[in-house]
Amino acid sequence: MLFSISVLLLLGMSLGALCKKLHLPALTGMLITGIFLGPYALDLIDTSILSVSADLRRIALIIILIRAGLSLNLEDLKKVGRPAILMCFVPACFEMAGMILLAPKLLGVSLLDAAILGSVIAAVSPAVIVPNMVKLMEEGYGTKKGIPQLILAGASVDDVFVIVVFTAFTSLAAGDSVSIRSFINIPISIFLGMMAGLGIGLLLSVFFHRIHMRDTAKVILFLCISFLLVTLEDYCANVIPFASLIAVMTIGVALQQKNQALSLRLSSKFNKLWVGAEIILFVLVGATVDLRYLKSAGGTAVLLLLFVLLFRMSGVFLCLAGTDLTKKERLFCMIAYTPKATVQAAIGGIPLALGLSCGNLVLTVAVVSILLTAPLGAFCIENSYQKLLTH
């Protein structure tokens, strides 16, 4: 296990740095590291690490969402208004509609299989988007009009919406009934997550004000509370809908509103944690990629993905209609809302595990979407924001 961890970190860090030198996103090198070290290639990652891979990826995601919450200014988000709400579900709906229209013709699948495929592909990746948007906020690009805040908030809620829709479609394919309650649970889970995060954030700000402790101890306490919230969501899944990751981010927002100086110090601490968490996250995402499925995909899957991304970008364009954003700023939002990675890695194999006829195809397209959009999306964001956004 120690050998696997050292190789994983050293090679991930080295290839990430090499990609940066070549003006490519560092995550490209980390994904490649995971693919070649993973069980479908050299098989150098210990099985004990792979068995807890989902939990490790979740921990990394929690770290970056805390960092995002500590950097997110609510006043800037309020200025955006209506588009912030629309971005949570409209682009995903457009992308699913595009998949339902095109997949039966290009891949010869049924409408229900196309709907399942669309619900897997429609989620954007917070792991790619969040660190890039935090970077923009720190550098002051697009913040006056709340562009990074808009994308950040939308991407966080987008995943909750898409996963609920995916669960509904897979239940239909498995022969189970789908209740209206599952769709009503979407806004309820988001609302309860926000309320829980806000309440805990306010309590933490009072606690930190009255009880003196080192910032490192505050970081540990923050992480422990976040882990407990995520665990609570798992236990209460069938009783009370609760979006724990939104709660985690809202805690950071509440702390930032009450004590900006403290949030800056904590954000600095989480930035350091993210250095290692980023490598673990993307290397383990790469390790889920089974290269054998890529042979069966061919150019058709790539073509299909490019088309449905155009549908998604059209959805983003519609969300921004009537705003004061310039053409360049709207173009940036459309580009920034395309990367996929973590959700596809997490749910791409579920239809296959359920024994659905579309399982292999869904996993194949999910793999292609990660390899195509994660590096390409990150590359486009990193190389366009200075040209398209106002500093």
Rank of each mutant, 00 (worst) to 15 (best):
V219L: 04
F3S: 12
A243E: 12
T231W: 14
T216K: 01
H209T: 10
P241M: 00
I85N: 11
S357P: 02
E138M: 05
V134S: 01
L204F: 14
V162N: 01
S71Y: 03
I35L: 14
C380F: 03
S384E: 06
W274H: 05
D324V: 01
N73K: 06
G98W: 14
H23M: 12
G359I: 10
R330F: 02
L101F: 15
A92G: 12
P339F: 00
A196I: 11
G154I: 00
F282N: 01
S357H: 08
D55A: 04
G154K: 01
F222M: 09
A92K: 12
S14A: 08
M99Q: 11
I49P: 10
S71P: 06
I62M: 02
D55S: 05
S182E: 15
L372E: 15
T338C: 04
A247S: 09
A26Y: 13
D43T: 08
V362Q: 04
S244T: 09
G108Y: 12
S267M: 02
V52F: 15
A60M: 10
G315L: 01
I147P: 07
F183Y: 08
L61P: 13
R214N: 02
K340Q: 14
I64C: 02
Q344T: 12
K340A: 00
L150W: 07
D76L: 04
L372P: 08
S369D: 15
A297H: 03
L325S: 03
F222P: 04
I279N: 00
L65D: 04
L352R: 06
D46F: 06
P148D: 01
L150S: 04
A168D: 09
S296D: 10
A26L: 13
A155F: 05
G142T: 05
A168M: 07
V253L: 11
S125M: 03
L232A: 05
S268N: 05
L264E: 12
R67L: 11
I59S: 08
M195W: 06
L318C: 08
I63S: 04
H212D: 13
L354V: 11
T326Q: 03
